[in-house]
Amino acid sequence: MQNGTEANATRSQSLLKVRKYDFSGVLSPKKGFDVSRKEILNSLRDCAKVIGCRRITIKQYDAWPHRVLCSRQIAVRFGGWDIALTEAGLEVRTTSTGNAVEMVELFMDCWEDCNDVPTIKTLSNHLYKINSKFSPTMYSRYFGGLRRLAIKIVKYKNGEISENQLLDKFCKKGADRGSISAKLRYTVFERDQFTCVSCGRSSKRDSVRLEIDHKIPVSRGGTSELSNLQTLCIDCNRGKGKICV
């Protein structure tokens, strides 16, 4: 271990110039990370109670004087504003086809103004400038990311996909099955009395295999909420799949 004299000698031989600036400040905790995830979730729930609605917007939360962090910091912590709302047990605003049209139009407006494919930063600035109700997070949630949307727009302009395909909500393969927990699956079966809601056959009486089906397919914007789930036997579920195709 160096003593004080040896340390001073080493500094005098250093290739770096002596600076008076205090660099210790950069070692302090990153802003926003000194608040626990539990505190953030409780803050979101408290804000929803004050507003009296289970669906709160970014503007509503940022305007709340008792928030623990701003919405942007929360989005960074959880990987997205909507993800944080979901973990807090709050409702997430869905995007209708009409909104999808407006979102695509705004995205292409930004593309033309910047003369380049919009990034999160340029799109965010554009949406802020026009006081839009949309956010980059909503684009990522609905279209699966800005780059994915940009590619779809190019394909649409080249006549490779239809307008409906351009406006379709992105759905990650397997997300519909993976999002249904064992507890939720049993709840659906119990609610439907372990009976196929289509043909009436029962797993106990008819020894038929039952499955969980999405009334509105995930590919068309359906969710894995209890109200969108139903019990079907394997035959009815496969038959429904063929009709949908």
Rank of each mutant, 00 (worst) to 15 (best):
E87Q: 14
K30W: 04
S43N: 08
C47R: 03
G52K: 09
Q73I: 02
G32M: 06
A63L: 07
L85C: 07
L85H: 06
Q60D: 09
R45V: 15
A75M: 10
T86M: 14
A63W: 05
K38W: 04
D34I: 03
R54F: 12
A63S: 13
I40W: 02
A48W: 01
V35H: 13
F78S: 01
R37M: 10
T57L: 10
K30R: 09
L69V: 04
R77S: 10
I74K: 01
L27Q: 06
R45N: 06
K30N: 01
L27E: 07
Q60I: 10
S36R: 04
W64M: 05
H66A: 12
E39V: 15
I40P: 00
K49N: 14
D46A: 07
R55E: 14
C53I: 11
G79I: 10
R45Y: 00
Y61Q: 05
R45K: 12
D62L: 04
I83K: 12
R37P: 01
R37S: 13
R55V: 11
L41Y: 02
D34S: 13
H66P: 03
W81K: 00
R54N: 14
E39G: 03
N42C: 07
L27G: 06
L41K: 05
E87G: 03
L27V: 06
A63P: 11
K31V: 13
E87Y: 08
V76Q: 12
D82C: 03
K38F: 09
L44W: 01
K38D: 14
L44K: 03
S43D: 11
R54G: 15
V50H: 07
L85Y: 08
E87D: 10
D34Q: 09
S71D: 09
S71P: 02
R55I: 14
A75Y: 04
D62K: 04
G32C: 05
K38C: 06
K49G: 01
K49V: 13
F78H: 02
S36W: 08
D34M: 05
R45W: 05
G80S: 11
G32Y: 05
G52T: 14
R54E: 15
I74A: 01
F33L: 08
I83L: 13
L44E: 00
L41C: 02
Y61F: 08
V35D: 11
K49M: 09
C53Q: 13
S43G: 10
L27M: 06
D62V: 03
L41N: 01
P29A: 08
W64T: 09
I74W: 03
Y61L: 03
D34V: 01
I56D: 05
D82I: 00
K31Q: 08
T57R: 10
G32E: 07
